[in-house]
Design a protein around this nucleic acid. Structure first.
Length: 867
RNA sequence: GGGCGCGUAGCUCAGUGGGAGAGCACUCGCCUUACAAGCGAGGGGUCGCAGGUUCGAAACCUGCCGCGCCCACCA
């Protein structure tokens, strides 16, 4: 049995993660453990990383996202899958361009000073510097990504995918160019899609302006009146119906505009009259369309008034008060309300107030694509975890507006459309030559960054080519990301994937996690000063502790609160594993060969092996349900409570006694630790690998098989026996604690009733754990303690027992038992309960009553013995 | 304005119809030869409020109060 015993390496008493982590990670990469091959016979398991913004650095949210993905990948790898975790980064068009523009601004330059070509070159330079930092952070986290497949959304291959996708959508009539009111950022000087606009409730000022005696309109944006081309009223509004078809003069401009009737107007709001500015408001634009109103653009792309007159050249926010002042002077202002809180859109990248602007842009007609994206989830081909979040997904895809994809930026994929001298428009595919000749020019704009990241699950695998990778690894298995980009990114990938991959959705499961928050549930923000850098934790507590802390808080779809205290707890847990393994090594734990025959196993061995089977089954279920918090909880308690606090403590006397029982225990201990380390490896890869190698002498835990349950090892009797043993031990310890008996102090005692409690065989163990010694033949008790399961302990402490304290304790226990018994009797005395409750429930109550009554009897006997 | 969700121990959260749980924090006692980043014991909750359904509600229904998030073109 001891032949495979490993040499005892000298592990230090405390786990030092820093040294271990760097050494191990380089070994893992060098050994090629993270590489996946399309040629493999193993079934594929694929995750593509949500590509981080190339200019950013990884924050706690990434650490959470990566921990979850790495855990899934590592487990599948151990389960024998060809597991591919594909890394990469996103060029993040507008965000990246803004960063570089800010750098230029610090030198007093603008992108126009450099010109398009030089500017883009400059962004590539910045990408090279910044991207490297992210890759380094991923290594520190322990991400087992296939580095040979790292991709970037602006790579040649991915750019080819973008062009192919554009061309295909264009040819199918799903991409079109139109003049529309779009969200415009006057600072970034580009169009924004709906999702790039964030609404906040801002203070404004609502003024009512008298256009004529009968016409009074309200507005928060007085400056737009320079572009008014109508006033609208509800067609059914009795007050104003007679005005429809007449004209009114716009103050300050002298322009005559018609009054039209339009259903959009809410007669109950304000005066029930609306000024209509088709070029500067999306609603007004629609009203304009319906009534063939002209659109008067009164502002340039920077938000500066261009309408001729006294306000020309003023910024929109200067023009507003100036116009209000001028109107007031004219006596045109009839009412003012301020502050007036209303929703205002801001550029999500720079916070500038968005200006609705009439302009010519490219759009994707999302109607058929969004329909398919919704159906794939509705019909179960794609599962959203947690399922409740599917409602949000549907709310989005079922109400999707057409997607504005052109951006007036330089950093990104240029729109592959050429315009000819005679108004020709040619969309050019990746293998086609763009038209040449005088007068031809390419569209200046680039595509929305989500247009390329939306193709990530297949473009990274080689699409549009039908590569071996694409065949093997698409569709991907699970997409792990925060619920915050369910709309931005996930819905786009669904639309594109279904569209070009023969209706195959890009992933089987969408596993959503929440946002990382601080220990009070507050959002982490720089201004609040509660941001935690994952690298700081990795350095102080280790990557495993950081990962465990995040995973431990990760309930599906829910936000994840973290704090340094909790990370410290995780670090302590890693150290606990470390020391448990140290104990095992010192005591010659054996990890080779089959487990001993059942007949050789002690009840304690059978108990821990049985518990292990439950744990393996639970962890598997929890993994399948993405219940990371529960995985951590299960393993934490099994490793710490069952293995360390009970099994190891119970094993000590056995190991000390030596002989065959000790050999059996060494084998069981080795097995249990081996399995626990495997189960924990996906979450805490470093410490488990280090310990497993020390324990087994083998190369790495990464390729060790994932534990499977062994039903023959489930042993209910042994579990019941240990529960009783634990209760008795705990009760005796409580007595010792209550009595202030020093842990080292031995007490003479006689244990009565162990046979009735079916733990007679454990008497030596119990005595050893709670330091009770045999009183010998002339034993005479000075006190009696009633403990669980019919066990009484007769003690002789030579007069040092505080009888009053013990009596008080027993009285308290009796009160509790009486309450319990009374409750049970009341239930059983209720005919409705006995009649209607299911039988197991009734039996349970009967059992409970029996136990309570037995407890009462024991307590009474003990009290009598005290007296 | 529309939609979704939450309110359980001091803090953060599990628990979805039958004995109120975990981690951290707290109290007491211990350096018991794996671990003081540890060991043992303990205290602490009318499960937001009010009704209802049920033999039985923290859980299911209704209303109210409080909080959060997402979406949104009421000037």
């Amino acid at each position: 049995m001891d032949t495979q015993r490993t040499a005892v390496p000298s592990l230090p008493a405390q786990y030092q993660p820093g040294e271990v982590e760097q050494r191990r990670y380089e070994q893992w990469v060098a050994a090629g453990h993270f590489r996946a091959s399309a040629d493999s016979d193993k079934p594929p398991f694929t995750i593509v990383i949500p590509p981080p913004n190339v200019t950013g650095s990884l924050h706690m949210g990434h650490a959470l996202d990566h921990t979850v993905q790495d855990a899934l990948i590592r487990r599948k790898r151990m389960q024998g899958f060809e597991a591919l975790w594909l890394p990469g980064m996103d060029h993040a068009g507008i965000a990246t361009q803004n960063v570089v523009e800010r750098q230029l601004a610090a030198q007093g330059l603008s992108r126009h000073d450099l010109g398009r070509e030089k500017f883009v070159e400059r962004v590539w330079q910045w990408k090279a510097e910044s991207g490297g930092a992210i890759l380094g952070q991923m290594r520190r986290l322990g991400d087992s990504v296939d580095w040979e497949r790292e991709r970037f959304t602006m790579d040649e291959g991915l750019s080819r995918a973008v062009q192919t996708m554009f061309k295909r959508l264009y040819d199918d009539g799903l991409i079109y160019r139109a003049e529309r009111i779009i969200n415009w950022c006057p600072r970034c000087l580009t169009a924004l899609s709906d999702i790039e606009v964030e609404h906040t409730d801002d203070d404004g000022e609502l003024v009512s302006i008298r256009y004529s005696d009968e016409v009074v309109v309200a507005t928060t944006r007085a400056e737009t009146m320079l572009g008014d081309t109508a006033v609208a009223v509800h067609p059914e509004d009795e007050r104003y119906r007679h005005l429809i078809g007449t004209e009114v003069e716009v103050p300050l401009t002298g322009r005559m505009i018609p009054i039209v009737g339009d259903e959009h107007v809410d007669p109950t709001f304000g005066t029930g009259m609306v000024k209509v500015t088709p070029a500067h408001d999306p609603n007004d634009f629609e009203i304009g369309q319906r009534h063939q109103l002209p659109s008067l653009t009164i502002m340039d792309e920077r938000g500066v008034i261009t309408a001729a007159g006294p306000f020309e050249g003023l910024d929109r926010f200067e023009a507003r008060p100036a116009i209000v002042a001028a109107l007031r002077e004219d006596g045109r202002i009839v009412a003012e309300k301020r502050p007036y809180v209303h929703a205002v859109g801001h550029c999500s990248r720079c916070r500038t107030t968005v200006e609705p602007r009439l302009s010519l842009q490219w759009f994707v007609n999302t109607t058929p694509l969004a329909q398919a994206a919704g159906d794939a989830v509705r019909d179960g081909r794609v599962r959203i975890e947690p399922a409740e979040l599917a409602k949000r997904y549907f709310a989005w895809v079922d109400n999707m507006h057409d997607w504005c994809i052109s951006r007036q930026l330089w950093w990104g994929h240029r729109i592959p459309v050429w315009y000819g001298p005679d108004g020709e428009v040619v969309c050019v595919g990746p293998d086609e030559q763009p038209p040449t000749g005088p007068g031809w020019r390419q569209d200046e704009d680039v595509l929305d960054t989500w247009f390329s990241s939306g193709q990530w699950p297949f473009s990274t695998l080689g699409w549009p080519e039908r590569t071996a990778d694409l065949e093997k690894f698409y569709p991907t298995s699970v997409l792990v990301t925060g619920y915050d980009i369910l709309f931005f990114w996930v819905a786009r990938m669904m639309m594109f994937g279904l569209y070009v991959m023969d209706g195959k959705p890009p992933f089987e499961v969408i596993a959503l996690h929440g946002m990382v928050r601080d220990q009070y549930g507050k959002k982490m923000s720089k201004s609040f000063g509660n941001v935690i850098d994952p690298l700081d934790w990795i350095e102080r507590f280790g990557a495993d502790a950081t990962r465990f802390t995040l995973a431990r808080g990760a309930n599906p779809g829910a936000d994840v609160p973290v704090s340094e205290d909790w990370c410290q707890g995780s670090r302590n847990f890693c150290n606990k594993l470390w020391n448990a393994t140290r104990f095992a090594l010192i005591n010659g734990a054996n990890v080779g060969g089959p487990l001993p025959e059942p007949a050789q196993l002690s009840p304690v061995d059978r108990w821990i092996l049985s518990r292990l089977q439950h744990v393996v089954a639970e962890v598997d279920e929890q993994f399948e349900a993405y219940e990371f918090a529960k995985i951590c909880d299960t393993l934490y308690h099994f490793a710490w409570d069952d293995v360390c606090d009970w099994y190891v403590e119970l094993a000590k006397p056995v190991l000390a006694a030596g002989g065959e029982p000790a050999a059996v225990t060494r084998r069981v201990l080795g097995h249990v630790l081996d399995q626990v380390l495997r189960l924990l490896h996906p979450i805490a890869p470093f410490v488990t690998d280090e310990l497993w190698i020390a324990l087994t002498g083998r190369e790495t835990i990464q390729t060790a098989a994932w534990p499977v349950t062994e039903p023959t090892l489930v042993d209910d009797a042994a579990e019941a026996e240990l529960v009783m043993l634990q209760r008795v031990v705990t009760e005796i310890r409580r007595f010792r604690s209550d009595q202030g008996l020093r842990p080292a102090q031995r007490v003479a005692a006689r244990l009565d009733g162990l046979a009735e409690a079916r733990i007679a065989g454990h008497e030596p163990l119990i005595r050893s754990l709670v330091r009770l010694e045999d009183g010998g033949p002339d034993f005479s008790a000075s006190a009696t303690l009633a403990v669980a399961g019919g066990v009484n302990v007769a003690l002789d402490t030579r007069g040092s027992i505080d009888l009053a304290a013990e009596r008080a304790r027993l009285e308290k226990d009796r009160a509790a038992a009486e309450k319990e018994a009374a409750q049970a009797r009341a239930k059983l005395g209720n005919p409705a309960f006995v009649d209607k409750a299911p039988e197991p429930v009734v039996n349970k109550i009967k059992d409970r009553l029996a136990v309570a009554e037995a407890d009462l009897a024991r307590i009474a006997a003990a009290l009598e013995a005290l007296a």
